[in-house]
Design a binder for these strands. Structure first.
Lengths: 337, 337
DNA sequence: TTGAAAGCGCTAACAC
DNA sequence: GTGTTAGCGCTTTCAA
């Protein structure tokens, strides 16, 4: 059985409350007493029972992070950032994977497990605006992305429309007029895919280029394999294009490889751009142009918002913070035509 | 304030213990009573307080997973697998990043936070054999990899020596004799790097090819940038080679890109092989030959061993399980010379 | 089949 | 400064 405060108190010859005071850095403890207690703690190798502390104090020192899947590199890099930032604040992170499946997301929001943490950072993918009433976690919540606008909680969003517009304009500026899109979600308006499509269309419209739905490949998941599959579809259908905008970098990478297999040169024949600025975009052949959505900023901001809510620092109504994006020009769009 | 068993009991007109019985699926509850209680739970939206349950029952329903960094794709894919497997067992995962730094690893092992979970799956990188006495977590522990052989706990290891030997032999079979290595750890014998180097040397020896330390580039971290840096070093030093063995896929990817920048063709001039079988190896240009270390198997096995310990199923002394590897031949080694 | 009582290890009030 | 007391919400034991 693990040691308790009582064991330490016995050893140090004080009451167990004094031990508690020492551990919690209570100011009014005589140095000699403190030393005695600390010695006893060290000798015994005592470690406080955080579960008991949580029950009593009402907070756990943990937060939950819920993402679709860690094997999507974007979420791995995001989780890395959030865990690092949390660690600096002395918080530990419970990681849940929802698979991007709506039912699992809803289940997670309602789960008693959430109360093993003090708050939740949640990146939904399957849920949508219609689920706003059910966004009702038993702990403070920060939402990542715009899938559920009207939930009454803090949001951290990236500039999806603006970033996608910039990416598209970058291609237009390279003389590309027939820009295929990979990763759309049909009938989606305010999810990541919907917003990026809107940015794409806005850019086209601004430059007087007609929108052609035939160049838009839908793909619910955004793995490399989905990018490859979408590109195969476009090629098989004989769709003509001189550029590809992958709604994320892994889609773009999958697509790029299929293009190359088909004998098309990137960027000479087809320019390719992605979204996310993953580390690997710096090492593909050619390196992949992309949009840096400000991932580190998103991680830090989300955590900050959440900690404010947890601490109850008065912050008023739901807040919405937007990260800044940056276009990363690399080899995959380096040639004009 | 959140609802408690008492609130539900009041509502249902029974004692709070009966509510507890219902929640825990206790067999001897009259159906009518059960229905009454369940109705009350639903109406009130009651959720049990897991912290209190943990304190009383002595287990948390969580495990800790400690890895160097999630932005190393190997660990992201590993964590993905472990979290998915854990979820199937009804366990949730606390994710810690150690950065691969020895002090942080030791600190984590001694941390009271570990007791917020029932057990630990730990992938050390900074610690070594000399730290075996300090591998003494307050919860059951399963070690991933061979850095600390003599710790008295369960191990799950991959076949590093055998896999590296197979990779090297694959290159030798392609007529390559001057095989550079990237990612060695100097003076390491039983870490991942040390074992893979041993496999490499064994393969050379078996084929009568002399070992040349000048072809071995050391690199502590295994990011893509490290692979690129190592390759630059080799090229700058004028080292001659007709193949490169990256000790993981990200190193290989970084190296491959630098080779291509230097005007060397992969695989015609230089064959490249990695280790880990990351998803991205299927999409690089050329696709990257690699060794599949059996990641899914490792994840499941580690979890199984840990759950055995947690449940106290009598299992005897420390167990050691080895996953099976598989050579994945792709384009980056497709040409003989 | 249900209820009462005890206590998991800790922190927060308050007394000494 | 230090000790005593009372619970946090739950499960476990044992009695009814």
């Amino acid at each position: 059985m693990a040691l308790t405060l009582h064991d330490v108190a016995l050893r140090a010859g004080v009451s167990f409350k004094t031990v508690s005071n020492v551990i919690n850095g209570h100011p009014h403890v005589r140095p000699a007493t403190r030393a005695k207690v600390e010695a006893a703690i060290a000798e015994l190798g005592y470690r406080p029972n955080l579960t008991a502390r949580s029950l009593r104090s009402g907070h756990t020192g943990a937060i939950t992070l819920a993402v679709p899947q860690l094997r999507l590199p974007y979420f791995a890099e995001l989780a890395d950032s959030i865990i690092s930032s949390a660690e600096e604040l002395g918080m530990v992170v419970l990681l849940e994977q929802t698979g991007g499946v709506r039912e699992r997301e809803l289940e997670m929001l309602a789960s008693p497990r959430l109360r093993m943490s003090d708050g939740l950072i949640f990146s939904p993918l399957g849920m949508g605006e219609q689920d706003a009433p059910r966004v009702n976690a038993p702990v403070p919540l920060v939402l990542l992305g715009e899938r559920i606008f009207s939930a009454g909680c803090d949001h951290v969003v990236m500039q999806n429309v603006e970033g996608a517009r910039a990416a598209t304009e970058h291609l237009l500026a390279r003389g590309r007029r027939r820009i295929a899109v990979i990763g759309a979600h049909e009938n989606e308006e305010i999810g990541t895919a919907g917003l990026r499509l809107r940015g794409y269309r806005e850019a086209l419209a601004a430059h007087g280029v007609p929108y052609d739905a035939g160049r838009v490949a839908s793909m619910w998941m955004w793995h490399r394999s989905n990018g490859a599959a979408a590109m195969h579809q476009l090629l098989d259908k004989g769709v003509e294009f001189d550029a590809v905008f992958g709604f994320n970098d892994t889609l773009a990478q999958g697509a790029m490889r299929v293009l190359q297999d088909a004998g098309l040169r990137v960027p000479q024949d087809v320019a390719v751009i992605g979204f996310d600025d993953l580390d690997e975009t710096r090492y593909t052949l050619p390196t992949l142009s992309t949009v840096d959505p400000g991932r580190a900023e998103i991680a830090q901001t989300a955590l900050q918002l959440l900690m404010d809510r947890i601490k109850g620092t008065t912050v008023g109504g739901p807040r919405r913070v937007e990260s800044t994006f940056r276009l990363m020009e690399r080899e995959s769009t380096a040639v004009s035509r």
